Simulated assay, not measured.
Amino acid sequence: MEQLLQVGVITQTHGIRGEVKVFPTTDDPARFERLRKVTLDTGRESLELEIEKVRFSKQFVIVKFKGLDDINQVERYKRCPLLVRREDAVPLEEDEYYIADMIGIRVETEDGEAFGTLKDVIETGANDVYVVETSSHGEVLIPAIKECILEVDIEAGRMVVHLLDGLL
């Protein structure tokens, strides 16, 4: 399981005083107000940054990091993900899972037959949709509803699905 979970991606700078515009990749963007530190993944290194100030603008979160007070200091971090340690992540409710833990698990039908591998999760307004890569049907989209998702076992790396008529 991943020890760092993504909560957002820096999209661009905001103003000239070191603020950045972050696209939240968490279910609860307000969680940024409670965060004290995040890890910035530059692709080459990971930097632990302390959050100084947070505010909201439309669907974005405007973040100011302590010690980064100039646009030139944050310009290079565009498109970099912001991560939190698993223990600092929002606690999960029953039947909720971190997407990072789900990607790559094997998907089986209710008959115990191998069906494919979970490739992606599409977040929609009503319910999530699981993108399953199969060898016989290509990509199959399965709605994340109780009628279709019968079991998820993250530790075993397995999901059991019921394929409703019309999904294939």
Rank of each mutant, 00 (worst) to 15 (best):
R106L: 02
R17L: 12
G112V: 03
D69I: 06
I62D: 01
L164G: 00
M102V: 02
E155F: 12
P29S: 12
I71L: 12
K53V: 02
L40T: 12
K21D: 06
I149A: 08
F56H: 08
F32N: 04
K66F: 10
R31K: 13
S57V: 00
F115W: 06
G67L: 08
F60H: 04
E110K: 11
V20Q: 07
I154E: 12
T134E: 08
V90C: 00
E139D: 14
R31L: 13
V20G: 07
R55W: 01
N127R: 14
D128R: 10
Q59W: 00
R31Y: 13
D69N: 15
I105A: 03
L168T: 12
I122P: 02
S46M: 11
V20I: 15
D128G: 13
K58G: 00
F23M: 13
T42D: 09
P81R: 14
A100P: 04
V61W: 03
E52G: 08
A144D: 15
G67T: 05
S57W: 04
I145D: 05
E75C: 02
E147K: 15
L40F: 08
D120C: 04
F23G: 05
Y97D: 05
T11N: 10
Y97W: 15
I71K: 14
G15T: 10
V61M: 01
I103A: 03
G116I: 08
P29W: 05
G67S: 10
V38I: 14
V131G: 10
T26R: 02
R86V: 02
S136I: 05
V140Y: 03
V129G: 02
Q6C: 01
L5N: 00
K64S: 05
K37D: 09
A144K: 03
T109F: 07
Q73T: 14
E87D: 10
R158C: 03
I103G: 02
G157A: 03
R34G: 13
T117V: 15
L68Q: 11
Q6M: 03
E2M: 11
I145M: 12
T11H: 09
V140R: 06
V131T: 11
M159P: 13
T13S: 15
K66L: 14
L164A: 07
L82H: 02
L49E: 02
K58H: 06
V161L: 09
D27M: 01
V74E: 05
R34E: 11
E33L: 15
L4P: 01
I51D: 03
R158I: 09
P24L: 06
T134G: 11
A114I: 00
T25M: 04
E151K: 15
N127M: 06
M102I: 01
S135R: 12
A126Q: 14
Y97T: 02
L167N: 03
K146M: 14
I149D: 09
E48Y: 04
L40H: 05
Q6E: 09
R55T: 06
E147A: 15
L164Q: 07
S135W: 03
E113P: 01
K53Y: 14
P81F: 09
E110M: 05
D95W: 11
H14V: 13
M159H: 11
V22I: 15
